[in-house]
Every structure is written in structure tokens, then in C-alpha cells.
Amino acid sequence: MKTKVDRRKEVEDRLAQVMDPELDESLIELGFIDEIRIDGRRVTVSFKLPTYWCSPNFAFLMASDIRDRIRELDWVDEVSVRLKDHLYADAINDGVSKNRSFAETFPEFSSGELNQLRKTFRDKAFLARQDRLIRYLLKRGMTKTAILNFTIQDLQELSGDYPALKNHIESYLSIRRECLGTGEAHDTAFVKKDGRRIALQEFADYLKETQRTRVSMEFNAIHCRGLFQTRYHKEEE
């Protein structure tokens, strides 16, 4: 059996993969994870959100992602997820612990599962991450033509040459894999979210769109972080 410290580290690494779908940041980064308890093969994770009213569909996605990621650890037998201080905390905690789907948990108020919703927000995250990276490259003096000609392999090599870009490159390539599949080393790095190429003459307009998505997501992230801080830590400041 692994040490307690090791097991805790493994749980945290798993939680770092659970994202707030609207903000494209991990629950750990956002500070939403309230407590991790490990009792032998049993793991309990509690989490909190910026408001009592945060959309229950996104809350459900986060709760079930926590369960699924932790369950992947071979030493874990039982996972319990506790959302706190939320309008639908009881329903979500109950549904997730019983392995019910979203539609089963809210039979009256949903007309389907969350797959499409998740896809919509992964697409937005794709655009936002792509925008962030392209803008860094442009700022470093790379031409639009060069950027559009980059292959996946070029980006990976660039990551070695520019350590400051490493995180942005990895983050973009990871969502590119997720949305478009693994791809070949010589595949074009920057493509539209449906995999089509971006033509040089439409690049400026395209960047206006990606920027719009990135700005919106980043704005939401500061807003939510601020509200979370105010809700739970105002008195401590």
C-alpha cells in the first residue's frame, strides 16, 4: 500500500484534471476544492462554488468528473463527492454517489444528458487556448504565415526553445487532441475547431472570433474567482 502522502498526491493530481467547464480552469487552481479525506481505500472530496445559484448542470459535470477521475486510481474502492452550500447540493450529491446520470437525477427539469453542453464548452475552451497561444507567438514577432504553417511537431519543438511558452503549447495541444484526435506530427497545428485549415486571408477575422471567446471566458473566470473569494474569505482578509 502506498503512503498516505503518496495517495494524497495522486488524488490531487487527478483533481487537477477536473475542470470548471465554463472557465476552463481546474477546480484546484480555482480553489473550489474544500476538503480531501482519505480513509484507507475510501476517498471523500468536498467542493464549493462561487454562488448558491451556480448552474446545476455545470455543478453536476464537475461532481461526476471528480468521482470518475478518482475512481481511476487502482487503490480506491469508494469515492464520495460532497458539493456544499448549493441550491441542488443534496440532489447532485445523491445522484453522483448512486451513479445516476444527470437526466436520472433531475427527471423533471432536464430533457437529456450533458454531452452536448460539455462539447459546446470544450469547443469554447479550444478557441480560447488557441487564441492565447497564437497571440503569444505574434507578440514574439512570428508572422501569420509562419504560424499557420506550423505543424504539431514544430510546436513541440518550439516548446523546448521557449520555456515561457511551454504551458500554453501543452495546454493547446492537449485540447487539440481532445477535440480532434491525436493527429500526426506533420499535421497543421492551428486549425478550426472542426479540423479545417485557416486561410491566410481570413486569419484576422478568425482571430477576432477567437479573441471574443477568450475574453468572455477570462472575464467569467475573474468574476467567479472574485465572488468565491467574497463568499468564503471576505472576513479573513
Binding site: 454562488t51 445559484w53 451556480c54 448552474s55 446545476p56 448542470n57 453536476f60 441550491l87 441542488y88 440532489a91 444527470f102 437526466a103 433531475f106 427539469f109 432536464s110 430533457s111 437529456g112 444528458e113 450533458l114 452536448q116 453542453l117 459546446t120
Partner: peptide, 12 residues
């Protein structure tokens, strides 16, 4: 918003 609807769609 803030939405309070547990829909499978985006209520915003």
C-alpha cells in the same frame, strides 16, 4: 442569469 434551471442546456 443567474440561472437556477437544472437544464441539460446552457440556461445563459
Amino acid at each position: 442569469g443567474p440561472t437556477i434551471t437544472p437544464l441539460n442546456r446552457d440556461a445563459f
